[in-house]
């Protein structure tokens, strides 16, 4: 049995969620992304941590 120490893991899960939500809010607000929007929505939601980071680095090109 694994005993999960929620006091330790909860903050990490919360900041992961913040990252995900911020990326999604930005995706909704932004006019154009680098590539189709729906694809970025899937990437942000499905790929944990790396998805939102990829979106911020590659997806949002504000020219």
């Amino acid at each position: 049995m694994i005993t999960i120490n929620w006091g330790l893991l909860a903050p990490i899960i919360i900041i992961q969620l913040i990252l995900l939500v911020v990326a999604l809010i930005d995706l909704v607000k932004i006019e154009k992304t680098n590539g189709p929007k729906w694809l970025w929505a899937i990437i942000i939601i499905v790929v944990n941590i790396i998805g939102p980071v990829l979106y911020f680095v590659i997806g949002r090109r504000n020219h």
Partner: peptide, 21 residues
């Protein structure tokens, strides 16, 4: 406006914290 102040620190936290965990 780029949300850099949010996502860069969060990424740095997640990067480092995974090691001790």
């Amino acid at each position: 406006r780029n949300f850099k102040w949010i996502w860069v620190p969060i990424t740095f936290i997640l990067l480092g914290v995974q090691e001790p965990l």
